[in-house]
Amino acid sequence: MPDQPSNVDVRRRTATVRGVEFGRGRPEIIVPLVGDDLDALLAQAEAATATPARVIEWRLDRFRPDLEDAEDHREVTLAALGPLRAALGADRALLVTFRTTAEGGRRPYSTRALGALLETLISGRRAGTQSAVDLVDIETAREEGVVASVVDSARRHGIAVIGSHHDMEGTPDEETMVRILRGQRRLGADIPKIAVTPRSARDVLTLLSASLTVAEDLAGPHIAVSMGTLGASSRVTAETFGSAATFATAGEGSAPGQLAAGDVAGMIELLRP
């Protein structure tokens, strides 16, 4: 496995996908698509392309909840990838994410099925195009072998990896969050990500401090989010505290506390340091 994937600039410690450079200047806005069928998915994609967001996240676990069998779900997902890529156009990067139930997702999926789905999307098999996916999210708490296999496959196909960790119950201490983010990078994530649930305003400060500590490593971009209404400020102060991206909505959101993409873009601009 190479030390750095081809889309990471080791001189400036940024990660670039489809012309979008994570880790330089203004944080990127990522809009999630949570449609449960193809029509809803494409309608949300149309709404997302009308926002300032340059990165669109497809939440695979929210797609076709009526299909219980993992293989059936994988087939309809692959069939939808081509139309979705066409709807987004050439200028927006596509991030594919399957959030497991352990980290706030909507459907159960075995570790083996998860790896098979992500690796098939990465390779572009039966998708109609080899460049449909630009980034892939893999939860780094999943089985080590599956994480390594997804990372390796993404590197071979020139796709950036977001290594993610979500705490739906609370906010760990700063040392733990810093350790998680640094560990994700060692596992091969181009963009480590942590999202936590605050129970107090001080929890939000702890998340922001952890983000700043990791940013001072100058090792590459990362994403740090404090979820819920209490943590909403973390979504618009990302640049000040070193986070390379934030999540915002164009309709229905995918996590508590997400704000409208247009509002987030305006607040980011007003708060730029």
Rank of each mutant, 00 (worst) to 15 (best):
A116N: 02
T140P: 03
T237K: 03
S254K: 07
S211C: 13
P65M: 00
A238P: 06
R26S: 03
L42N: 04
V151S: 12
I268Q: 08
E269Q: 14
G19V: 08
L94Y: 02
D167L: 05
V161A: 00
D66W: 01
D263V: 11
I191C: 01
D9Y: 06
V236F: 13
T77K: 08
L187A: 05
T77W: 03
L42I: 12
E239I: 11
A160P: 05
V55L: 02
L121M: 04
R85H: 04
Q258I: 01
E68W: 09
F22V: 11
A141K: 00
D203E: 08
D173V: 09
A141T: 15
E21S: 06
L84H: 03
T14W: 08
V10F: 00
V55K: 03
T197I: 04
L88Q: 07
D39V: 00
E269V: 08
V8M: 15
R112Q: 07
T213D: 05
D37C: 02
T140S: 06
R62Y: 09
T49A: 12
L88I: 12
L84A: 11
A224G: 10
L114V: 04
S164N: 02
R74H: 02
V236Q: 10
T120G: 08
V136R: 01
L42H: 09
A195P: 07
R11T: 10
G262Q: 12
